[in-house]
Amino acid sequence: MLKLRNIHKSFGDLKVLKGVDLEIKQGEVKAIIGPSGTGKSTLLRCINYLEKPDAGEIMIDTLELNAKTITKQEIYELRKSTAMVFQNFNLFKNKTVLENIIESLVLIKKMDRSTAIEIGIDILKKVGIEEKKNVYPSKLSGGQQQRVAIGRALAVNPKVILFDEPTSSLDPELVGEVLELIKKLAKENMTMVIVTHEMSFAKDVADKIVFMDEGKILQEGTPEEIFSSVTNPRISKFISRLSK
Protein backbone atom coordinates (compact mmCIF):
# COMPACT_ATOMS: atom_id res chain seq x y z
CA MET A 1 0.00 0.00 0.00
CA LEU A 2 2.78 2.44 0.98
CA LYS A 3 6.12 1.82 -0.64
CA LEU A 4 9.34 3.77 -0.33
CA ARG A 5 12.08 3.14 -2.81
CA ASN A 6 15.65 4.30 -2.43
CA ILE A 7 14.92 7.45 -0.43
CA HIS A 8 17.91 9.78 -0.09
CA LYS A 9 18.10 12.94 1.98
CA SER A 10 20.99 15.20 2.97
CA PHE A 11 21.16 18.37 5.02
CA GLY A 12 24.06 20.18 3.41
CA ASP A 13 27.01 17.83 3.64
CA LEU A 14 25.32 15.58 6.17
CA LYS A 15 23.89 12.48 4.49
CA VAL A 16 20.96 11.50 6.68
CA LEU A 17 19.08 8.95 4.57
CA LYS A 18 21.21 6.76 2.33
CA GLY A 19 18.76 4.80 0.27
CA VAL A 20 15.82 3.60 2.34
CA ASP A 21 13.38 1.00 1.01
CA LEU A 22 10.30 0.24 3.01
CA GLU A 23 6.94 -1.34 2.36
CA ILE A 24 3.85 -1.09 4.55
CA LYS A 25 0.81 -3.19 3.84
CA GLN A 26 -2.79 -2.22 4.41
CA GLY A 27 -3.61 -2.61 8.10
CA GLU A 28 -0.02 -3.18 9.10
CA VAL A 29 1.69 -1.52 12.06
CA LYS A 30 5.38 -0.92 11.68
CA ALA A 31 7.60 0.33 14.46
CA ILE A 32 10.86 2.04 13.59
CA ILE A 33 13.57 1.87 16.23
CA GLY A 34 17.23 2.76 16.24
CA PRO A 35 19.90 5.00 17.76
CA SER A 36 19.46 8.77 18.03
CA GLY A 37 20.36 10.78 14.94
CA THR A 38 19.89 7.85 12.60
CA GLY A 39 17.28 9.58 10.47
CA LYS A 40 14.07 8.06 11.82
CA SER A 41 12.28 11.39 12.11
CA THR A 42 13.67 12.53 8.80
CA LEU A 43 12.30 9.41 7.13
CA LEU A 44 8.80 9.98 8.53
CA ARG A 45 8.93 13.64 7.54
CA CYS A 46 9.94 12.65 4.01
CA ILE A 47 6.89 10.39 3.78
CA ASN A 48 4.56 13.37 3.94
CA TYR A 49 7.01 15.80 2.43
CA LEU A 50 7.63 18.02 5.42
CA GLU A 51 11.15 17.34 4.20
CA LYS A 52 11.71 16.97 0.50
CA PRO A 53 13.78 13.86 -0.29
CA ASP A 54 16.69 14.46 -2.67
CA ALA A 55 15.92 11.29 -4.56
CA GLY A 56 13.68 8.27 -4.39
CA GLU A 57 10.10 7.27 -4.91
CA ILE A 58 7.06 7.17 -2.69
CA MET A 59 4.13 5.05 -3.79
CA ILE A 60 0.84 5.13 -1.98
CA ASP A 61 -1.96 3.14 -3.60
CA THR A 62 -2.10 4.45 -7.14
CA LEU A 63 -0.07 7.57 -6.43
CA GLU A 64 3.55 7.30 -7.58
CA LEU A 65 5.78 10.18 -6.67
CA ASN A 66 9.34 10.64 -7.75
CA ALA A 67 11.36 13.18 -5.80
CA LYS A 68 12.92 14.49 -9.00
CA THR A 69 9.65 15.25 -10.77
CA ILE A 70 7.09 15.78 -8.00
CA THR A 71 4.65 18.69 -8.39
CA LYS A 72 2.99 20.83 -5.73
CA GLN A 73 -0.34 19.22 -6.53
CA GLU A 74 1.12 15.75 -5.95
CA ILE A 75 2.49 16.85 -2.59
CA TYR A 76 -1.01 17.95 -1.53
CA GLU A 77 -2.41 14.62 -2.73
CA LEU A 78 0.21 12.77 -0.71
CA ARG A 79 -0.58 14.82 2.40
CA LYS A 80 -4.27 14.07 2.05
CA SER A 81 -3.53 10.35 2.27
CA THR A 82 -1.04 10.55 5.14
CA ALA A 83 -1.21 12.18 8.56
CA MET A 84 1.45 12.94 11.08
CA VAL A 85 1.42 12.80 14.89
CA PHE A 86 4.26 14.85 16.34
CA GLN A 87 6.32 14.43 19.46
CA ASN A 88 5.22 17.88 20.66
CA PHE A 89 1.58 17.47 19.59
CA ASN A 90 1.60 20.76 17.65
CA LEU A 91 -2.11 21.33 18.18
CA PHE A 92 -3.37 24.60 16.68
CA LYS A 93 -3.10 26.87 19.70
CA ASN A 94 -5.74 29.32 18.51
CA LYS A 95 -8.33 26.62 17.93
CA THR A 96 -10.41 24.64 20.40
CA VAL A 97 -10.18 20.86 20.60
CA LEU A 98 -13.14 20.39 18.27
CA GLU A 99 -11.88 23.06 15.87
CA ASN A 100 -8.52 21.29 15.73
CA ILE A 101 -10.29 18.15 14.57
CA ILE A 102 -12.61 19.70 12.01
CA GLU A 103 -10.10 22.12 10.46
CA SER A 104 -9.09 19.66 7.74
CA LEU A 105 -12.69 18.60 7.14
CA VAL A 106 -13.91 22.13 6.54
CA LEU A 107 -10.85 23.58 4.85
CA ILE A 108 -9.48 20.67 2.83
CA LYS A 109 -12.45 18.38 2.35
CA LYS A 110 -14.86 21.35 2.01
CA MET A 111 -17.52 19.77 4.21
CA ASP A 112 -20.20 21.99 5.59
CA ARG A 113 -19.66 22.87 9.19
CA SER A 114 -22.47 20.83 10.73
CA THR A 115 -21.41 17.60 9.02
CA ALA A 116 -17.83 18.29 10.05
CA ILE A 117 -18.89 18.82 13.66
CA GLU A 118 -20.79 15.51 13.69
CA ILE A 119 -17.74 13.67 12.43
CA GLY A 120 -15.54 15.66 14.79
CA ILE A 121 -17.60 14.66 17.81
CA ASP A 122 -17.45 11.00 16.76
CA ILE A 123 -13.67 11.23 16.54
CA LEU A 124 -13.47 12.92 19.93
CA LYS A 125 -15.51 10.09 21.41
CA LYS A 126 -13.14 7.62 19.86
CA VAL A 127 -10.06 9.28 21.36
CA GLY A 128 -11.97 9.68 24.61
CA ILE A 129 -11.92 13.44 25.06
CA GLU A 130 -15.33 14.60 23.96
CA GLU A 131 -15.98 16.47 27.21
CA LYS A 132 -13.14 18.88 26.42
CA LYS A 133 -14.36 19.79 22.96
CA ASN A 134 -14.61 23.53 23.60
CA VAL A 135 -11.36 23.87 25.50
CA TYR A 136 -8.16 25.36 24.09
CA PRO A 137 -5.10 23.05 23.90
CA SER A 138 -3.15 25.05 26.51
CA LYS A 139 -5.68 23.88 29.12
CA LEU A 140 -5.04 20.18 28.45
CA SER A 141 -2.49 17.74 29.85
CA GLY A 142 0.15 16.39 27.48
CA GLY A 143 -1.64 13.06 27.20
CA GLN A 144 -4.92 14.74 26.38
CA GLN A 145 -3.22 16.96 23.80
CA GLN A 146 -1.64 13.97 22.11
CA ARG A 147 -5.00 12.19 21.97
CA VAL A 148 -6.51 15.25 20.29
CA ALA A 149 -3.57 15.28 17.88
CA ILE A 150 -4.30 11.66 17.03
CA GLY A 151 -7.93 12.65 16.50
CA ARG A 152 -6.82 15.43 14.17
CA ALA A 153 -4.81 12.88 12.20
CA LEU A 154 -7.82 10.53 12.04
CA ALA A 155 -9.97 13.35 10.66
CA VAL A 156 -7.77 13.47 7.57
CA ASN A 157 -9.00 9.89 7.02
CA PRO A 158 -5.48 8.99 5.95
CA LYS A 159 -4.32 5.73 4.46
CA VAL A 160 -1.49 5.73 6.93
CA ILE A 161 -0.72 7.62 10.15
CA LEU A 162 2.90 8.46 10.91
CA PHE A 163 3.84 8.76 14.58
CA ASP A 164 7.12 10.40 15.58
CA GLU A 165 7.85 9.40 19.18
CA PRO A 166 4.29 10.12 20.29
CA THR A 167 5.02 9.64 23.99
CA SER A 168 8.54 11.06 24.31
CA SER A 169 7.53 14.44 25.68
CA LEU A 170 4.90 13.08 28.07
CA ASP A 171 5.22 12.69 31.81
CA PRO A 172 5.57 8.96 32.60
CA GLU A 173 2.11 8.70 34.12
CA LEU A 174 0.52 10.04 30.91
CA VAL A 175 2.27 7.66 28.50
CA GLY A 176 -0.20 4.83 29.09
CA GLU A 177 -3.35 6.56 27.85
CA VAL A 178 -1.70 7.46 24.54
CA LEU A 179 -0.23 3.99 23.99
CA GLU A 180 -3.61 2.45 24.78
CA LEU A 181 -5.24 4.60 22.13
CA ILE A 182 -2.64 3.60 19.53
CA LYS A 183 -3.19 -0.06 20.42
CA LYS A 184 -6.91 0.44 19.96
CA LEU A 185 -6.31 1.87 16.49
CA ALA A 186 -4.06 -1.09 15.69
CA LYS A 187 -6.89 -3.46 16.60
CA GLU A 188 -9.12 -1.55 14.18
CA ASN A 189 -6.56 -2.24 11.46
CA MET A 190 -5.34 1.32 11.08
CA THR A 191 -2.16 1.36 9.02
CA MET A 192 0.55 3.00 11.09
CA VAL A 193 4.26 3.72 11.12
CA ILE A 194 5.53 4.48 14.60
CA VAL A 195 8.96 5.76 15.55
CA THR A 196 9.38 4.94 19.20
CA HIS A 197 11.82 4.33 22.02
CA GLU A 198 9.20 2.35 23.98
CA MET A 199 10.52 -1.15 23.29
CA SER A 200 7.83 -3.09 25.11
CA PHE A 201 5.16 -1.07 23.33
CA ALA A 202 6.82 -1.70 19.98
CA LYS A 203 6.94 -5.41 20.74
CA ASP A 204 3.31 -5.31 21.76
CA VAL A 205 1.69 -3.32 19.00
CA ALA A 206 3.87 -3.76 15.92
CA ASP A 207 3.51 -6.45 13.29
CA LYS A 208 7.01 -5.68 12.10
CA ILE A 209 9.91 -3.84 13.63
CA VAL A 210 12.38 -1.92 11.51
CA PHE A 211 15.82 -1.21 12.89
CA MET A 212 17.42 1.88 11.40
CA ASP A 213 21.07 2.73 11.72
CA GLU A 214 23.08 5.51 10.09
CA GLY A 215 20.53 6.37 7.46
CA LYS A 216 19.77 2.82 6.40
CA ILE A 217 17.48 0.01 7.36
CA LEU A 218 19.72 -2.54 9.04
CA GLN A 219 17.11 -5.18 9.67
CA GLU A 220 13.40 -5.73 9.54
CA GLY A 221 11.45 -8.53 11.16
CA THR A 222 8.74 -9.58 13.55
CA PRO A 223 9.22 -8.46 17.16
CA GLU A 224 10.37 -12.00 18.02
CA GLU A 225 12.97 -11.96 15.29
CA ILE A 226 14.31 -8.57 16.31
CA PHE A 227 14.20 -8.99 20.09
CA SER A 228 14.95 -12.64 20.76
CA SER A 229 17.13 -14.11 18.07
CA VAL A 230 19.26 -11.06 17.60
CA THR A 231 21.99 -11.76 15.12
CA ASN A 232 23.32 -8.29 14.48
CA PRO A 233 25.69 -7.02 17.19
CA ARG A 234 24.64 -3.38 16.73
CA ILE A 235 21.00 -4.27 17.29
CA SER A 236 21.68 -6.41 20.33
CA LYS A 237 23.83 -3.66 21.81
CA PHE A 238 21.05 -1.09 21.23
CA ILE A 239 18.38 -3.32 22.74
CA SER A 240 20.38 -4.39 25.77
CA ARG A 241 21.26 -0.78 26.52
CA LEU A 242 17.60 0.25 26.35
CA SER A 243 16.29 -2.55 28.49
CA LYS A 244 18.75 -1.78 31.29
Partner: peptide
Protein backbone atom coordinates in the same frame (compact mmCIF):
# COMPACT_ATOMS: atom_id res chain seq x y z
CA UNK B 1 6.58 27.62 16.92
CA UNK B 2 7.62 26.00 13.62
CA UNK B 3 5.53 22.99 14.61
CA UNK B 4 2.36 25.00 13.99
CA UNK B 5 3.15 25.41 10.28
CA UNK B 6 4.25 21.79 10.01
CA UNK B 7 1.01 20.58 11.54
CA UNK B 8 -0.93 22.71 9.04
CA UNK B 9 1.00 21.34 6.07
CA UNK B 10 0.75 17.78 7.38
CA UNK B 11 -3.06 17.83 7.19
CA UNK B 12 -2.95 19.16 3.63
CA UNK B 13 -3.18 22.94 4.03
CA UNK B 14 -1.33 25.21 1.65
CA UNK B 15 1.21 27.71 2.98
CA UNK B 16 -1.27 30.59 2.60
CA UNK B 17 -4.13 28.69 4.22
CA UNK B 18 -1.85 27.95 7.15
CA UNK B 19 -0.87 31.61 7.39
CA UNK B 20 -4.44 32.83 7.29
CA UNK B 21 -6.03 30.29 9.63
CA UNK B 22 -3.33 29.44 12.15
CA UNK B 23 -0.10 31.45 11.99
CA UNK B 24 -1.35 35.03 11.53
CA UNK B 25 -4.07 34.87 14.19
Amino acid sequence: DKGQMEACLSIGMTYWQAMRRIILP
